[in-house]
Design a protein around this nucleic acid. Sequence first.
DNA 1: ATTATCTATAGATCTATAGATAATGC
DNA 2: ATTATCTATAGATCTATAGATAATGC
Lengths: 193, 193
Amino acid sequence: MPYGELMNARVRSEERRAEIVRAALEVIAERGYRGASLAAVAERVGLTQQGLLHYFPTKDALLVAVLTERDQWDAVPDTQWRVDLLVSLVEYNAMRPGIIQTFSALLGESVTEGHPARGYFTERYAKVRENMAAVLRAEYGDQLPNGLTPERTAPLLVAVMDGLQYQWLLDPESVDMPGAFRDFLTLLGENPH
Amino acid sequence: MPYGELMNARVRSEERRAEIVRAALEVIAERGYRGASLAAVAERVGLTQQGLLHYFPTKDALLVAVLTERDQWDAVPDTQWRVDLLVSLVEYNAMRPGIIQTFSALLGESVTEGHPARGYFTERYAKVRENMAAVLRAEYGDQLPNGLTPERTAPLLVAVMDGLQYQWLLDPESVDMPGAFRDFLTLLGENPH
DNA sequence: ATTATCTATAGATCTATAGATAATGC
DNA sequence: ATTATCTATAGATCTATAGATAATGC
């Protein structure tokens, strides 16, 4: 019995939804959320636009699924990271321009008024800053070699990661994203361990 | 004779164009470039959409004017800055969320394929990195206190400025943008002067 | 019965072109 | 003559709803 027939309806439906979310990630990377049409996403999975709306009743519902997907893929706000794992994350990101482009485009759009991803990003960054402060505290204690606290350093760490992504997406030849991120870590001072 | 009648046609036309560009900056801040309709910009200056097209024949032509405006407003790529002036620039930016929002939204969109501002931002960042390297060299010489070169530090400086803008736009209460930028400068090490 | 998908279509937009009309400036 | 502005409109899209049809699963 072929694999397909072993699947029940629920599983098949879940797979279809996942396929649609993947397609949406691609289209958003290419055109942003406002520029992404449901028809373009649907075409990529061999559906009509109305067929897609069977799985996600509105465009915003699809965006919510995209954002949720990210939380599962890169658990930056919630995982207990270590500084050396952050380096690995940046190296990994440098191999996946598509996904970075999706979320860089979404972040940019999200600062405009009434954007449906605005609340998501606001909350996410608050959590990421908190989490990064904890990471820095675990690594350096209450004070970094340069005298700053983890809480004051965290927004800088996050800013560097995001800012480097834009420079790298625009000009990957000229910007060594992981190298620059490592440089930033040396700026933080010698690791006490 | 009232002021208006003293102006010749060329001057009046230039003023109208400037008015339209200002309105475009606002609408882009609110909705991004793809989301900004010519009708919305036109309405803000009391014109019909077709009337606006008399001054800028296409939507992209208007975007070019917006980007040119920025180059005149904040000459980051071309002015010979000093580190303390950069602090002032960031403080100044913190008082103008609108303009920062416009260009943060445009930067975000620009990483998507075929965006009309992509080339502009790619070139701009190459120039900004070069310029910032020169600023750092003037301040610190060929090597910073932490051992990095100006060329390797420049992308980090730029990334911090951009990344902080996103965090600040999303949550101005939680992010002290100028303070964080000053923190970054202390990370670079003591000023040798 | 429920799920998956389609056709048809309403109702909004959006950019850009064509061409008219009024006002301004040599 | 040129400039500023308008009305009319073509031609593309876009999201979302309504409702039909076929396939799947208790």
